[in-house]
């Protein structure tokens, strides 16, 4: 079985990942994906670079558990999560969440569920370089609210 979770410095190719997820599987009638990218502004300041740190081992484990939970909650065929770490530039891709299922509803829901879950529970931290110097990005209450709608304990921010 192909890896479900990858934490990597390298970029990823959406079409290659989606083709791998579909794998000529005739049960699949829907594939939904989300790609997060680096903005050039955040909280009113321009961002020149972004550095992503993570907790090796725990990160993979946490996301694997999230995918298991997505399979329990939704009738999906497969899921794939890639998250980049290290030094990134504005416009770079940061994260991919892709889900396959028989019908679209389950893919749409599971994709959003995984992304909302990852935002509050996966151990990643962003540090931005701005004209005023480097700063660690603060967690957002809105991310807790997004997770709460899935009944996920939301107390990160």
């Amino acid at each position: 079985m192909d890896a479900r979770v990858s934490i990597q410095t390298e970029d990823f190719d959406l079409s290659i990942e989606l083709a791998a997820l579909r794998r000529d599987d005739g049960r699949v009638g829907a594939v939904c994906s989300f790609v997060g990218t680096v903005r050039d502004r955040n909280d009113g300041q321009s961002v020149s670079t972004m550095e992503l740190e993570h907790y090796p081992g725990m990160t993979e484990r946490a996301i694997e558990a999230m995918i298991d939970e997505a399979h329990r909650r939704f009738d999906i065929v497969g899921a794939r999560v890639i998250h980049r770490v290290g030094l990134l530039q504005p416009l770079d891709q940061i994260v991919l969440v892709a889900v396959s299922s028989a019908h679209r509803g389950e893919s749409f829901q599971a994709c959003e569920f995984l992304m909302d879950y990852l935002k509050i529970q996966a151990p990643f931290w962003k540090k931005e370089q701005t004209p005023q110097g480097a700063r660690w990005v603060d967690a957002r209450v809105s991310d807790d609210a997004a997770a709460a709608k899935w009944g996920l304990q939301a107390s990160n921010a």
Binding site: L52, H54, I120, Q121, W125, W136, V137
Partner: peptide
């Protein structure tokens, strides 16, 4: 044991 600030991935 890991100690860290609130997470900010994605």
């Amino acid at each position: 044991v890991g100690f860290f600030p609130p997470v900010t991935g994605g």
